[in-house]
Design a protein around this nucleic acid. Structure first.
Lengths: 173, 173
DNA sequence: CGGTATTTGATATGATGGATAACAATTATC
DNA sequence: GATAATTGTTATCCATCATATCAAATACCG
């Protein structure tokens, strides 16, 4: 009996909603009260991240690239001559999970594995010409559509401040 | 032959690393270059979100609550008399996936489902006394450990600015 | 040198989060 | 009163993420 009168509760809600009478602690009629959820950074962080990824996917949809795949291509372009473990580690991807990911990119001829002659255990991952071309087009789409939309919403200064704070958290937390 | 001399590439890297001689575009010896990844908001956003959730789990570990479970308890506390669909929708959880989540919380006696007498299809979800107690303790842990650490890292002003920007993105993007 | 330990890519597997289709019970609609 | 819509639920699928394990190759060390 610790959970108190259900019938009374929603009967009260119904009547209050009908009469448009404010409830004791919150407006019970329409949308729910977020309460202290609005102050919880992790919540807004997750929600924002989902929105950003969603928009990224839309903007780069013609190239069929996920954020993770895009990050791999970017990293390969900047760091030629590296093996799978190095790339995966840098992106926080576990080696077993990176295998399928590379398989996918390689099957689309965006990159290739090359057995290192130094260390015949490791596969050096290289961008193909096709991979470089797709990356170039992806960068343009991201800059012109995705990041542009952010600047529109926040302005360049706030956008830079946001990026800086997120990087700080990612680095030092 | 479009991907050019692997042997030469990593042979060169090896020798450069040995002689500590700077590479043409980047330092190829130690850590990889993040390049334009540092400018990609989605990347830092995701990384920061993982760190924040990780820390949340640590801080609230004594109570065995995930961020999602915590958000459910918070919402139930603020919005008594609501049914499963309303709670789930507000949190962006799909109704089918909310069932197992509620099962878990209910099996721990943190909340309970009560058949509404108004609409006998719906289950009104209520916090139990135990649920309220756990929520209270969780709030204290989050405030004292988790959010405090953020204030330590960013300072109250930047923390508030960050929260504001994330909420803006989550709302309007 | 030779034996042991470590590293690398890979496979299998499990846990989790998220999405859709379908269903019975109930209620709304016309 | 017949049909449509809603609610909670189940089953199922897909993607992400984590661990253990393995064979091949290399490093290490006595």
């Amino acid at each position: 009996m610790s959970v108190s009168k259900p019938a009374a509760v929603d009967a009260a809600r119904a009547s209050r909603a009908a009469r448009k009478e404010p409830a004791q602690a919150a407006a019970e009629n329409g949308a729910l009260q977020m309460g202290e959820l609005s102050e919880l950074l992790g919540y807004s962080l997750k929600r924002a991240q989902l929105k950003i990824f969603e928009d990224f996917l839309r903007c780069v949809a013609p190239l069929q690239l996920t954020p993770a795949q895009f990050s791999v291509l970017l990293l390969l372009d900047r760091n030629p001559g590296r093996n799978q473990t190095e790339i995966a580690n840098t992106l926080g991807i576990l080696r077993p999970n990176f295998v399928a990911m590379l398989d996918s990119l390689e099957s689309r001829d965006l990159c290739a594995r090359i057995r290192s002659t130094n260390d015949r255990r490791s596969h050096i991952v290289v961008l193909t010409d096709e991979g470089r071309a797709v990356l170039a087009r992806a960068k343009k789409l991201v800059a012109a559509k995705h990041e542009a939309r952010l600047n529109e919403l926040l302005g360049p200064a706030k956008r830079a401040a946001l990026l800086d704070m997120l990087a700080t958290i990612a680095r030092e937390f």
